[in-house]
């Protein structure tokens, strides 16, 4: 487990994000994403049923919850990869309901996936270039005339090199993405997402399957996103990471938002403890859940 990794420098936490009490669905001072009544059922099972939730701008928000809480499904709904049965949600004031995934991405809301989707048989550089939006050469007819896109392609390449250097992948630029390690692929996916210069980055379990040596640099990169003015929303199972870098935590259980707040106070919320511990009564005790229980005890101790 990567539970003991911490960012290399103490992160600056954003405060004063919300209005009123830190209750589920509370108002934010400057929300970037607002979801209302989003519901999705699979067969008879309700996977997601979120009444109201707001994501604060310019902060790092963590979406946590036990297995099967509907976090990834909620992600898929927000980014247009799945269609809800009901509900509406807006990004920067624009409604995103019924907007296809690729248009959501073009608006500046970029996501990554729980199982990395690096394009294995493309080179690292091609992976990066694919991330850039608004490319002239991506039109079939203009693609035939390199004169029209060569200059832009070189600019994109320069930006890609810059990002790859930051993510320490520049030495691998001509290798197939398939040859990278799991952690490097996570980094590549994140770097590729940045090529489009997004305003909101949504990371689905960025730490899953990453070896401990790389987690620290991943944490630094996520903090780096915030420093550059981006908003980050990430799904995470690993409570430690949440404690160190998140400014705001939203807890989901059984498809609903059960608690919200800053990392320290939210962990004391009985609803959260119930959500994590209650799960153990009726399902197998996964090792990660055991770790989480430990982490929560630790958090509670921190606050004493």
């Amino acid at each position: 487990m990567s539970s003991n990794a911490t960012p290399s420098s103490k992160p600056v936490k954003s405060v004063d994000l919300h209005v009123g009490d830190a209750a589920p669905g509370c108002k934010k001072n400057d929300p970037i994403l607002i979801a209302d009544g989003v519901r999705r059922t699979f067969g008879g099972l309700t996977a997601v049923d979120v009444d109201h939730v707001e994501i604060p701008r310019g902060a790092i928000t963590a979406l946590i919850g036990p297995n099967g809480a509907g976090k990834t499904t909620f992600f898929n709904l927000l980014t247009g990869f799945d269609k809800p049965d009901a509900g509406s949600w807006t990004f920067d004031g624009t409604s995103l309901a019924h907007v296809p995934a690729y248009r959501v991405a073009r608006m500046g809301l970029i996501r990554t996936f729980q199982l990395t989707k690096s394009l294995a048989l493309l080179s690292v550089m091609d992976n990066m270039k694919l991330g850039a939006t608004g490319q002239t050469g991506e039109n079939m007819f203009r693609a035939l005339l390199p004169v029209l896109w060569r200059k832009q392609d070189q600019e994109i390449e320069a930006r890609a090199v810059e990002l790859l250097t930051r993510f320490k992948l520049d030495a691998k630029r001509n290798d197939y993405a398939a040859s990278l390690s799991g952690g490097q692929r996570k980094l590549l996916e994140m770097a590729r997402a940045l090529m489009s210069e997004p305003t909101l980055v949504m990371l689905d379990e960025p730490m899953a399957g990453v070896n401990p040596a790389l987690t620290q640099s991943l944490l630094d990169h996520i903090l780096g996103l915030k420093e550059q003015g981006m908003t980050v929303l990430f799904v995470e199972h690993d409570m430690h990471m949440v404690r160190h870098i998140a400014d705001w935590v939203i807890v989901m259980a059984e498809g609903r938002v059960v608690a919200e707040g800053d990392p320290h106070t939210v962990m004391q919320n009985p609803a959260v403890i119930d959500a994590y511990l209650g799960q153990h009564h009726d399902s197998d005790l996964g090792s990660s859940d055991a770790d989480n229980v430990e982490a929560m005890k630790e958090l509670l101790d921190d606050d004493k």
């Binding site: 990869f81 690729y102 996936f113 989707k117 694919l130 079939m140 035939l144």
Partner: peptide, 28 residues
């Protein structure tokens, strides 16, 4: 000439994983 252009790059990306390409804002 098409396959060495950015257009061809998108196609190859779709071959590898169309959801990833969709998430990057391409109309797959």
């Amino acid at each position: 000439s098409l396959m060495r252009s950015p257009w061809g790059r998108v196609l190859k990306g779709i071959r590898e994983d169309e959801d990833a390409v969709r998430a990057l804002g391409k109309n797959v």
